[in-house]
Each structure stands twice: as C-alpha cells, then as structure tokens.
Amino acid sequence: MAKAKARIKVPKTASAGEIITIKSLVNHRMESGHRTDKDGRAIPRKIINKFTCEFNGKPVFSCDLGTGIAANPFFEFKARVMEAGTFHFTWIDDEGIKIEARKEIDIV
C-alpha cells in the first residue's frame, strides 16, 4: 500500500459566524471487495469506512463510507466558525489504519 497523503483546504481566516467551505482528499484505492484478480479470486474489501471532522474537539461533520465511494475519497462540506481554533480530520479504514490531519483557522 502506497503512502497515504491527505490534502485539506480550509481558509486561513474567517469572520466570526461565517460558514466556510472545507475540501478534503485522501489517497486510498477503496477496494470494493466486488472485483476479482486475474486468476478469478475475489480481491478482499479494503475501504476507508469513516471520516470525521472536529473543530476544537466538537463534531462538525462526519460520514460512514460504503464501497460506493470512488477511489481517493473527496468531500467538500461546510462549517460554521465562531472562534479561532483547529480542525481535526481523521480517516479510518477497514484494517483500522488511521490517517489524521489538522488545520488552523483565525478569526478576523
């Protein structure tokens, strides 16, 4: 499995109460479990099944992923920012492997 690279876009600043757009992308093949290899054997399922975004420890957005999410899962979603702080992102796959990323935001 190649290195997993997470890419996050969060604005550096926002005004208090502003609704911002967050984009997240992570490299993962999202093996569905529905494919077979060239000898006809089923390739076991291995997907990211959980993505969460918290802000200063409080849940903002999360999702439970199934096999129908495309490889290299991408989510664009919103967050209401009331104070400066840190967004914390986590992705967890079927083997329990956890990928994490953090982004700071300031209030202007």
Partner: peptide, 26 residues
C-alpha cells in the same frame, strides 16, 4: 449497486449548512 448504501453524512449545527459534494461509483 452491489452494495446500495453508498454513504451516510452526519451533520451538527456547527456544519452551518447541510451541503456535501463527493464522488461515487455507479
């Protein structure tokens, strides 16, 4: 789809808007 449940999004008031974009398999 072989597994019809594609994804479930969970929001909170901190989400600001219930609006999500992603890419799926069909």
């Amino acid at each position: 789809n072989p597994n019809p449940q594609v994804v479930t999004f969970h929001f909170t008031p901190l989400s600001g808007e219930a609006k999500v974009k992603t890419r799926m398999r069909l």
